[in-house]
Design a protein around this nucleic acid. Structure first.
Lengths: 232, 232
DNA sequence: CGCTGTGTTGAATGCCGTCAACGTCGGTGG
DNA sequence: CCACCGACGTTGACGGCATTCAACACAGCG
């Protein structure tokens, strides 16, 4: 079954392309389903494809030689990932794991060069994606260098709700399962510290949280925490 | 005076280009001298040019709203910098300061699009530069998340000597002036801790250091420190 | 009904940041 | 040439933040 261009027509990566161009791009793509917690690709694997996430959420994880794991970022719907080819890499620098059941398009890396010349605005958006990820990562380095754990965790939770938030009954909730350990791996902290802080914030009425679930009930207060301007 | 193509012919950014193409690229470039400690461009400034460092060393610095400074990286001879345009940015995300007297080529951003189509391999190398900086920065996040200060500082010093080292009499030395404060801003530490560690390493015969100068006399031992496998 | 993954909380330790005081070098101007 | 001054470097003492370890609670699931 051919893929319908409506899948991708609205995405920023494809803005400025004709319908027929969309079709020819899609003709080379392949759609796949990835169940929750399955690995889409592994760190240091030979990079064979690049991907576009159609639905779900993906966790990008780096593992150190001695087994520590770091969450590099979460990928949201409509974003490119696994674009090692656009960076001139032959292996994936991290692994990608489905945080929930996911659907993604994939293209063989061999199509990259042709795609780039046929649809330069698509390639351009890939480069821009890489650029903004560089910015994000630099920002993270700055945070880790200058802020203490509470502020970093508050910032991380804020980013999660703004990028992947869903309106719930009592506030904005992160719409995929996320554990204390996950937050720790995003902030260079430990699950114990995260647990303590979430408990403290819950006492202050800023968040509500439970098993693999975080709801921010007072985003403004959390912002003050992130900026270390909270009155205590 | 026109610029001679020998200035750039050997650089990886221009590999695979014809001599005449080099000349036409150079025709649009402008060569400038930047004295030590002068600012080439400032953080959040409108990005007007991109640059290639011909000689010297440049420090890329991010400043936080409350005045903390972080050294994002050092630029070495032959590297591109200030390539905000390749990331689709309109402002520079950090400032660039000459660590020593420098000479750099610069191109107006307006030439980027034409350069990209006329010499795609040049643009490609810019994208690869961005990609490898993303990798480096991710690596730095991993280090800051998993290693303690002594290991991070050892790694930073090792990177400096391998990327910008010069053989001295007693070992490999970093060939531009660098202070304890600079190392601290590269590692998310403080000048006090850096000073203590350098003193300790000097007692162990791993480094020799003085005012704005660091010489590694035993790189292998420093590597063991970086990997936390030193026998004490 | 146990088992595994997740979350909570207390207590103790220690790394490293902070502050203070002092030492030293190098450039500059009288 | 010398005195001065600012930038840089060193070292000790102290303290706090966050990790570490341990023990327990709870949920979901086979």
């Amino acid at each position: 079954m051919p893929l319908d261009r409506s899948l991708i027509a609205g995405l920023p990566a494809f803005s400025g392309l004709e319908g027929s161009e969309l079709d020819s791009i899609l003709a080379q793509a392949c759609s796949s389903r990835f169940p929750r917690n399955s690995e889409i690709f592994g760190q240091d694997q030979e990079a064979s494809h690049f991907f576009l996430l159609l639905s779900g959420h993906i966790r990008v994880v780096r593992t150190t030689p001695d087994g520590d794991q770091i969450i590099a970022r979460y990928i949201n719907e409509g974003e490119l990932f696994g674009i090692a080819v656009a960076m001139g890499r032959t292996t994936y620098p991290a692994s990608a794991v489905a945080a929930v059941d996911c659907v993604a398009l994939s293209w063989p890396n061999s199509t990259w060069a042709e795609l780039q010349s046929r649809a330069p605005s698509f390639a351009g958006s890939a480069y821009q994606t890489i650029g903004s990820r560089l910015q994000d990562t630099q920002e993270r380095v700055v945070e880790m260098s200058t802020q203490q754990v509470e502020q970093r965790i508050a910032s991380a939770v804020l980013r999660l709700v703004t990028q992947s938030g869903r309106k719930g009954e009592t506030g904005i909730e992160i719409d995929f399962p996320i554990s204390r350990q996950d937050i720790a791996e995003m902030t260079g902290s430990t699950l114990y510290t995260v647990s303590r802080l979430l408990s403290a914030w819950e006492d202050e009425g800023i968040v509500r949280s439970g098993r693999q679930k975080i709801t921010v009930t007072d985003p403004h207060a959390l912002m003050l925490v992130a900026e270390n301007r909270r009155r205590r």
